[in-house]
Design a protein around this nucleic acid. Structure first.
Lengths: 189, 189
DNA sequence: CTTGAGTAGTCACATTCTTGAGTATGATGG
DNA sequence: CCATCATACTCAAGAATGTGACTACTCAAG
């Protein structure tokens, strides 16, 4: 029941349409909450019905019109209440880890390939997020920005995202190396 | 649709009852897949019906009888097929990050408290996993074990778990410090 | 002048996950 | 001896998520 809060939190930075939110959920927000566009549209409709967000039509000439939403005071209260409630421990779900868990009982070759792909994906994500961070902090250096910036929330969650991706990359590199070495040892027998 | 594969992967290490699996999912397996006991019982029943696992009754004297399961050849094939299929990118979902995202627009005090709790939880988890790792590798040192151990899958996923928890802890410490400093600066104005 | 990509959104269905309660037994601690 | 914890498992209901297909418009490249 916290997709709603992720949406509210994302809308704190201004007015967004469902489509724009979907973009945001693909990059920054994905660091802590993953959701498909359909879910966002559904959730926005529900939030509007409950008065937590307000939508208004924006007529566009060169593209389809859109509806943008912003958080109402009621919505802000809801976020406050959510912030005060106890958090559940975060959880990860990762197909690839399931495969690594069984790596030595089944074929490892395919798993190694996927580890390599993951490394590349992680590096791309790191680059993307680093750019995002640079954009957010502007000229200031990080310490400076974190002390005096006025909107640091998204920056902080991006930091977590970068750290996660780095961890992901390093782990994948190491595991791929380990599995390769074992494969070589096995072949040389 | 990968809880089934997580269960199969967990059962590669021997015969387990639903109850025992639930324990495993609470510690080691939780590093890459989180599931409640009820889901495991349901999944085991389904897997048995489809012939991917086989259960047998174990009569116990001092405790309730149990049914333990092991993977069948069909189940092993299914895992192979799964390992060869492309993985979806892993995703995180974390209440606390949602709160941090909106931290500077709502009250931060409660969030700081929760960050502290998270630090403690992460440290406990790290200790637990370090123990688990030590148990798994026995006398050998890590390099040695990873080269020649015969069952390293669970060890590798635990390494990821430890790294994740360390990342979690470090990030929480940093963010809590940042928010505290801003809080102090704000109060001093 | 057509194909493909990007913008903007909707509908319906199916699966999965969570919540909450409940059964039954033996062991442990005060 | 009574309460509580640990083992071992089940059922039902409801909320959240995911999958796939679809509409409609504009712009740019080939």
């Amino acid at each position: 029941m916290a997709l709603r809060h992720a949406v509210l939190a994302a809308l704190l930075d201004g007015e967004f349409s469902g489509y724009q939110l979907a973009k945001a959920f693909d990059v920054g927000v994905a660091n802590f909450w993953h959701a498909l566009p359909q879910q966002l549209y559904t959730e926005l409709a529900r939030l509007e019905k409950e008065g937590l967000v307000e939508g208004r039509q924006v007529v566009q000439e060169t593209r389809p019109n859109k509806r943008v939403f912003r958080v109402t005071d009621t919505g802000r209260d809801e976020l406050e209440k959510f912030a005060a409630s106890t958090s559940k421990p975060s959880f990860i779900r990762d197909d690839l880890l399931v495969k690594v868990q069984s790596a030595d009982r089944i074929g490892t070759a395919q798993v190694i390939e996927q580890l390599d792909e993951r490394v590349a994906a992680a590096e791309a994500k790191i680059a993307l997020l680093d750019d995002l961070l640079r954009q957010m902090r502007g000229d200031a250096d990080e310490e400076e920005f974190l002390r005096h910036g006025e909107r640091i929330g998204p920056y902080l969650t991006c930091l977590r995202g970068v750290a996660f991706e780095r961890g992901q990359r390093d782990w994948c590199l190491r595991i791929a190396a380990v599995l390769r070495e074992r494969q070589a040892a096995h072949a040389g027998r």
